[in-house]
């Protein structure tokens, strides 16, 4: 298995952002890049990026584990200190999955699919997971951290998974270019943030186009309970609209799967 560590020089040449990743923190090993940026209060620069070759406690929703072998994949987080409107964060969450999907389509001609609210799938398998975390005090958001994991060069995944994982290596047979993927994701992310400020509807349209579960019968698992219905659409805020016995129910959290 080829372990190829991240080349900062190469990445820097490909990065075309104004503010994202202009402060870049490279970590050989860390518990999780999200936890690192959430806890490191001395890091205050908007758009700071932390990348780690290995996460020992990579996390997903509700502390689920995100496994990634050292040096093979991309695990990184972006810090936002100027996002004050909490209602915009849902757009950032969905917009980020769109950015990852667009990057993989562009660089590797892969056909991607988005799973509500922010997983990126290829052939029904998970290639990227996103976890957005924020800290609020009163009505103010003090810190927002966007964590993204992309499976790039891992040739095999061992274990039991809620959704089977895949990687660029598995899907294309070739090694993916981590520096190129990261630079393109961040370049697109910066543009996406402008877009969700100006025209969130257009981002939601692009997202909707890649969500192939719309119209299907789905199960929505919310903690210990399940709801069943038709995935009717997403609304203007990004909530899932579930049609149950002819009535529309708004869903704003949970795990969805086809029934």
């Amino acid at each position: 298995m080829e372990e190829k560590l991240f080349s900062l020089e190469k990445f820097d040449l490909l990065l075309d952002t104004e503010w994202i990743a202009r402060n870049f923190i490279y970590l050989d090993e860390v518990d999780s890049t999200n936890s690192f940026l959430l806890k490191s209060k001395d890091i205050k620069i908007n758009g700071s990026v932390a990348l780690s070759e290995k996460q020992n406690e990579g996390r997903g929703r509700l502390d689920r584990t995100w496994l990634s072998a050292r040096g093979l994949n991309l695990t990184f987080s972006v810090l936002f200190t100027k996002l004050k409107k909490i209602e915009k964060l849902n757009f950032l969450n969905m917009g980020s999955s769109l950015v990852v999907a667009q990057t993989l389509e562009n660089l590797y001609a892969l056909k991607t699919e988005l799973k509500w609210p922010n997983d990126v799938l290829i052939n029904k398998k998970k290639i990227s997971g996103i976890l957005l975390e924020s800290v609020s005090s009163g009505s103010k958001i003090t810190r927002v951290v966007l964590g993204i994991g992309i499976n790039v060069n891992q040739p095999i995944f061992h274990g039991d998974f809620r959704i089977e994982p895949t990687s660029i290596k598995i899907e294309t047979g070739n090694y993916g270019d981590k520096e190129r993927i990261l630079a393109e994701v961040l370049n697109r992310l910066e543009l996406m943030i402008d877009k969700i400020d100006e025209n969130p509807d257009s981002m939601l349209d692009d997202w909707r186009e890649r969500c192939r579960m719309i119209g299907d019968e789905v199960e929505v698992r919310q903690n210990d309970k399940s709801k069943y219905g038709i995935f009717d659409d997403i609304d203007k805020d990004g909530n899932l609209l579930l049609k149950v016995k002819g009535k529309i129910e708004k869903i704003n959290f949970g795990d969805i799967s086809l029934t």
């Binding site: 959430l38 964060l89 969450n93 957005l132 609020s136 958001i141 003090t142 990004g238 959290f253």
Partner: peptide
């Protein structure tokens, strides 16, 4: 939590 945004309240 809202839509996989985990917001910690301090």
């Amino acid at each position: 939590e809202a839509m996989k945004l985990m917001n910690e309240i301090i």
